[in-house]
Each structure stands twice: as structure tokens, then as C-alpha cells.
Amino acid sequence: MRLSTVILPVRPWHSGGRDEWLRAEELGFHTAYTYDHLTWRTFRDGPWYGALPTLAAAAGVTARLRLGTLVTSPNFRHPVPLAKELMSLDDLSGGRFTLGVGAGGKGFDAVALGQTAWTPRERADRFEEFLPLLDRLLTEEAVSQDGTYYTAVEARTLPGCVQRPRLPFAVAATGPRGMRLAARHGQAWVTTGDPAIFETGTPEDSREALRRQLDGLGKACAEIGRDTDELEKVLLTGFTPDRGAPLESLDAFVDFAGRHSELGFTEIVVHAPIPDSEFAADRAVFERIATEAPAQLATARVTV
């Protein structure tokens, strides 16, 4: 199982931000992601820097660590300029970039450009056009499309990505439409669990919900004749009923990760600690998990 982290863009680059990315590489994380939002929930009234410039800076100071968004969405992005920026990030990182991408939500990003917040169906409709167009832009030399939501006129993304045929997509999805997009366009699938049981569910309820999601992914893959084993299965922690429990100790994390590995997940993502926030955690425990948990998970036997 791969162990990755999320570094929220809340620290100035020269006052702690740079050190966070360097430390993630030193600790041996597989990937360090960041949220691609204009701001986010409880951080709205504090510092919040742009995801893509931050990742460009991180690419310049790291050598092995993979980098990515978790996740980019249509809320304030258009596929044509986004494709050019993603190609550039893949180049700057030497082919170490992964695009986490999803339909978006109803937070601050949803209305920051003056638009009326889209309904869940409208978000799904836009995503069904956004993702295939982005795929084409990163794999074809010239792309034209006159879509319902997105237009491209002889758009060129040359010379293309370092990674071929393009950088990998990690598609966040829970419903049937999103699962079909993940099956068709994704190299990975991402979930945060079932939000309906976040407040009142148990860890057992959460794992059962994740089993159902994995079954849905399997059905979507079967519809197009794709082997579901071709997709990495990524769990972003912090949004299941367990909340911060997996970061309370090394043993707690190994138990949590082992149980989810048994379900079929291949990558667990934990938030780098941010004091006085919902992502507060003991830094020493976090670093011990990064350095010791992978070896333990390689030999652990957990009964689900």
C-alpha cells in the first residue's frame, strides 16, 4: 500500500511552506497533494495560496516525491488553460505530476466567479464534458469542440506531457456517472467515504459504504471491459466517522490502513498536521507513521 499526504496551501512559501514539501519527500511519502480551491471551509478567513503555483514551486525543490491536486474541479477551471498549466507542471516536475479531479462541490468556489451554485446534476453534467475534453487536450495535438459548457478552437497543448500518453488522472467519484468517468479516463479512483454517515456512522458503517463504492467502480469497469485492478484506489482520510483517529498513534494507523487495504485500497492519504484546525495532530506521530507504517503494513494481517 502507498502512503501519501496532503499539504494544504496555508503557509507562505518562505515561512514554512517550502519546508513542508521538502519534509514530505524526506519522510518517504509516495505523493504530496494539495487542495485546488480558492479557499476552503474553516480556512476561509486565513491565508490560502494557489494550488498550481505552489505545486510548481514544490516541483523545483523536490526530486522523487510525486505531486498532485486533490482535487481540481470545474468550479473555477476551464479545460483549455488548465491543460496548458498541467502540461507545464508535468514538465517542471520531470513527470511526477498526478491530476486529482472531480465534479466539485457547493463551497465558496462554487459562487466565487459570480455564478449561481450548480445543482448536483449540473455539476455532474459539466464534469461529463470537462473531463473528456481535458483528456483530449492532453493527448491530441489540436482540439476543437463546441460543447454545451466548454468550447475549444484549435487548442494546442504542445509538446504534450512528459508522462505518456499523458499525466495520470485520479478521478474522485461516488455515484454511477462519476464511476463511469473514472473507469473510462482514470488511472486511479479517489473517495473520501460516504458523507451521509460522517456524523452518525460507525467505522464499520464506513467500511461497508466503501465496499459498495468499490462494487460500483467494479461494475463501471465491467461495462467497458476494463479490469478494475488497472486503477489505483485512493482513500483521502479525515472524512469518515473515524475522523482523526488513524493519526492518534502508529498502531491506530496501521490498523486503519490494514483494514482498508483488505477492502482493496492501494493508497491512503493523510493530512499534514495544521495546529488549531480540524487537521491538528501530533507531528511526531505523523512522522512516525510516515517512516514506520509502510513496513508494518507489508507484513500486517488484519481481519476485517
Results as ranks from 00 to 15, higher is better:
A280F: 03
P273W: 04
E204G: 01
R184Y: 08
A182S: 14
S88Y: 08
R123C: 07
V101C: 06
A222V: 09
E278D: 14
T139Q: 11
F265T: 06
F108A: 15
G114R: 12
G102Q: 00
L86F: 09
G186V: 02
G244K: 01
S73G: 12
E248L: 02
A112H: 12
P53R: 09
T202S: 15
V143L: 08
L231W: 06
S261Q: 14
A290L: 00
D19K: 12
T192I: 12
A245G: 04
L214A: 10
T98D: 13
A220S: 15
V162E: 02
A298S: 15
P195Q: 05
Y149K: 06
R121T: 14
W40E: 04
L82M: 12
L52G: 06
R177I: 12
Q213Y: 08
E199S: 12
R136M: 05
P9S: 05
R126E: 06
Q115S: 11
W21R: 01
E232P: 05
E278P: 10
Q163G: 10
T200A: 13
A298Y: 05
W189D: 07
A51M: 02
L217K: 04
F29V: 05
I289E: 03
D251A: 14
H14Q: 14
F29I: 07
F130A: 03
G186I: 05
V234S: 02
T42E: 15
G225Q: 11
G244I: 00
G107R: 04
V143A: 00
D135M: 02
W21E: 00
E129R: 01
D125F: 05
A220V: 13
S261L: 09
A32R: 05
P120E: 13
E230Y: 05
M179H: 10
E208Q: 15
L217F: 08
P241R: 07
G178I: 07
D276M: 08
D36M: 04
E248T: 13
L235A: 04
T299C: 09
D125H: 10
E128Y: 08
R136F: 09
A281W: 00
G264R: 00
T151Y: 03
C221Y: 07
R177Y: 01
R2S: 10
D282Q: 05
G178Q: 06
H14T: 14
F127M: 14
G17W: 06
L52W: 11
G160N: 07
